[in-house]
């Protein structure tokens, strides 16, 4: 998996610890979005033809193409279903999170 990871953020306690005005390092994600997900996409790697349509159209960028098999970053996948809908070979199925 090669996706940005959440940082361990310690809230500033003193004025000196606050940035000068509201600014912050970029790519500074705090917490995960998995809680927004009702359905979880599951890739059937045997069916997948690696066309990368799902990688391309994922609004989250949660599908990682760096390995031989595509991986989904479940920390940030919201389960919107675009990947499954756009998959031309039906390699992605959505499973209810409670049943996954």
């Amino acid at each position: 998996m090669n996706r940005p990871q959440p940082v361990n953020f310690v809230p500033p306690k003193t004025l000196a610890e606050y940035p000068v005005g509201p600014c912050c390092p970029s790519a500074h994600i705090v917490g995960i979005n998995a809680g927004m997900r009702t359905f979880r996409p599951i890739i059937d790697h045997a069916t997948c033809v690696h066309c990368l349509r799902c990688f391309l159209v994922c609004p989250e960028g949660a599908i990682d193409k760096s390995e031989a098999d595509l991986e989904i970053d479940l920390n940030y996948c919201k389960g919107c279903g675009v990947c499954a809908h756009e998959c031309k070979v039906g390699a992605i199925t959505l499973v209810k999170e409670t049943e996954a």
């Binding site: 996706r3 940005p4 790519a27 979005n33 927004m36 989250e60 960028g61 940030y76 919201k78 919107c80």
Partner: peptide
């Protein structure tokens, strides 16, 4: 493969 807009709180399917 690098993501430069990641971890946002937009609605699913945004």
């Amino acid at each position: 493969n690098e993501e430069l807009f990641y971890g946002h709180k937009a609605c699913g399917g945004c």
